[in-house]
């Protein structure tokens, strides 16, 4: 079973991107895709939002799948495989998740998703680029280092040239990643990510 991990700092646009990607992929017909939501807050809001758009969502909340809920993540993936046998699960991590811990958990304990079956998309919010480039927050730095796709989101809010400069800096920080400046809310430049997903799933 394949797993797409959509990660990124709080409010970087994970749910917005997830919805846009799933709407597009679902239009292929015959796809069996499942969404797994993880929120730090005690109440789930993203699940309700996605459900108003007709998506079925499994929720893990009141903790983070990188620490308190690591066990629940592994169990839930096994249960999803057993019950629905999806071709791919899309996991939205909490905005505070440490991707390194999640990868560690998957590698050690998860039997239903192999190490080559994980694609990580990390969102970076250009509207708050200081969080990426100035504050040196370890969780965000890890996301940049470990992601397969770096989605530089909210390019509609930036000034001319800002996205290009930020994208070049991200390429320098992780030369192996596929860097895509885009706007999830405006649906701008999602095609490179969708192509990559279709190829990969």
């Amino acid at each position: 079973m394949k797993l797409v991990i959509i990660t990124g700092f709080l409010g970087s646009g994970k749910t917005t991107l997830l919805l846009a990607l799933l709407k597009d992929l679902s239009s292929d017909g015959g796809r069996n895709l499942v969404v797994l939501e993880n929120e730090v807050g005690e109440v789930g809001i993203d699940g309700a939002y996605l459900e108003t758009h007709g998506l079925k969502v499994k929720e893990l909340y009141s903790g983070c799948v990188c620490c308190q809920l690591a066990g629940s993540l592994v169990t839930t993936l096994s249960e999803l495989r057993e019950a629905l046998d999806p071709e791919c699960v899309f996991l939205e991590t909490s905005g505070l998740a440490n991707i390194q811990n999640i990868m560690g958990t998957m590698e050690k304990y998860c039997e239903v998703v192999g190490p080559d079956e994980i694609l990580t998309i990390a969102l970076l919010d250009i509207e708050r680029s200081e969080l990426i480039f100035e504050h040196d927050i370890p969780v965000i730095q890890n996301q940049v280092k470990m992601a397969d796709v770096l989605a530089l989101n909210k390019t509609d809010t930036g000034e001319a040239g800002e996205a290009e400069t930020a994208a070049a800096e991200l390429e320098r920080m992780n030369p192996d990643a596929f860097v895509v400046p885009m706007s999830a809310a405006e649906g701008e430049n999602l095609a490179p990510i969708l192509d990559r997903l279709r190829e990969w799933i």
Binding site: G41, L96, I137, P138, V139
Partner: peptide
């Protein structure tokens, strides 16, 4: 600044 600086309430 680190992740522990962010405090959640619901």
């Amino acid at each position: 600044m680190d992740i522990e600086d962010f405090v959640p309430i619901s």
